[in-house]
Amino acid sequence: MKQSSTFRLSVLAFGFAFLYIPILSLIVYSFNKSRLVTVWGGFSTQWYGRLLDNRQILDAAWLSVKIAATNATGAVILGTLAGLALARFGRFRGRTLLSGMTTAPLVMPEVITGLSLLMLFVVLDSALKQAFGWNLERGFTTITIAHITLTLAYVTVIVQSRLSSLDDSLEEAAMDLGARPAKIFFVITLPIIAPALVSGWLLAFTISLDDLVITSFVSGPGASTLPMVIFSKVRLGVSPDINALATIIVLLVTLGVIAAGIFMARQEKRRQRDMQMAAAAK
């Protein structure tokens, strides 16, 4: 027994070292004075200062945050509807197609999704021009549409699994008492799945913030998102201000994940306490 637990500990130690050493090295070298990044030249925070002076990176970051927030909101709305349909409406016509279309983007290579969406936008653009004289400018709108299509799949999976793990007795009770479907949704279903919506929103936000390949296909000449700027810099080799940027992102994400984790643990605890109280009241 002793032997197997040492084996398990060493497996975990090796695995987590593999996962975390690259991230730690990014952080450590962001404080390196030397431009060579991996040759230590003393402690310095100068690259953070440089980063704040870099208009190109700041503009790109702001554009990325705007796209990510719009995308996450849209993906949560559409994903909730799709998750609700898949988990609660039983077998309806076209259910298989809907469930296929919501899971396929999860594994589809990004080059395919990106290429096909761009082709659609080109066709749509010429159609809109002919019909209404509208111009579908490639940029914020097309990137956001592309990201929603990708991330709505994640939200659907999260909402669907949350709904199927809870039985629908509360909803049924409300229906028996004569509540309308819309009211049941807002008063009962929505509060139950709220934690799933929070994590779905955050996930959609970070995926959008991070996407390079699909964005590169559907973006236009004027719109460069943060990953696009990072990619064009990184292609030329390591650069210390990218390390500083990475450190900031890692820090924000870690804080966000920990905060969300605490929030959800509290929700879960409250739910369990309520259940216990209900059991005691019986």
């Binding site: 990014l26 970070t206 913030l209 990953p227 080799g237 390591v238």
Partner: peptide
């Protein structure tokens, strides 16, 4: 701890390996 790296930028995690 397994999920956390997945939340940080994929592009930057690949970039980290250049330095390594």
């Amino acid at each position: 701890l397994v999920i956390l790296p997945f939340w940080t930028s994929f592009l930057l995690r690949v970039y980290a390996w250049i330095g390594i």
